[in-house]
Amino acid sequence: MRLAVYNVENLFDRAKAMNLGSWAEGRPVLDRFAALNSLLGQVTYSGSDKAEMARLMIELGLEKSDTGPFVLLRRNRGGLLKRPRSGGLEIVADGRADWVGSLELRDEPINEHAMRNTARVMGDLKADVLGVVEAESRPVLSAFNREILPAIGGAPLRHVMVIDGNDERGIDVGLMSREGYPIGAMRSHVDDLLPNGEPVFSRDCPEFEVTTPTGARLVVMVNHLKSKGYGGKAASDAKRKAQAERIAEIYEGLIQQGTEHVAVIGDLNDTPDSDPLRPLIEGTSLTDVAEHGAFDDGGYPGTYGPCTASNKIDYMLLSPALYARVVAGGVFRKGMWPGVRPKKWDAYTELTRPEEAGSDHAALWVDLDI
Rank of each mutant, 00 (worst) to 15 (best):
P199Y: 06
F70A: 03
R278W: 03
L73E: 14
G293W: 11
Y251S: 07
L80Y: 01
R325C: 09
E198S: 15
H189L: 04
S202M: 15
N10Q: 04
T352I: 15
S38D: 12
D204I: 01
D94N: 09
R27K: 15
P338E: 01
M316Y: 02
H159S: 11
L218R: 01
S202R: 14
L62W: 03
M57R: 00
S236V: 10
G101F: 13
P301S: 10
A357H: 01
G215L: 07
Q256T: 14
R55Q: 14
V262K: 00
L218Q: 03
S48I: 08
S310N: 14
G79P: 00
P28G: 10
P354H: 01
V92C: 05
D191A: 12
V71F: 11
A234W: 14
D346C: 07
E134H: 02
N145T: 08
L149I: 15
L40V: 11
P139T: 09
R325G: 04
D167I: 06
T308K: 04
F144A: 03
V160F: 03
A93D: 00
D124W: 01
G339F: 08
L20T: 03
P279G: 13
K239I: 02
I91K: 02
E356Y: 02
F201G: 02
G305I: 03
E282V: 11
E291K: 08
Y45C: 12
G123H: 06
P354F: 02
A135N: 00
R217F: 07
P139F: 14
G329W: 05
R77M: 11
E260H: 05
A235D: 11
D273R: 08
D66R: 09
G170P: 00
M57N: 01
A242Y: 04
D49M: 12
G131F: 03
G21K: 10
E249M: 12
G165R: 04
D13M: 10
A263V: 02
C307S: 05
G253Q: 11
S22C: 02
E245C: 06
D31F: 03
P272R: 12
L125H: 11
A97C: 08
G258C: 09
T118E: 05
G154L: 13
M186E: 11
L141I: 09
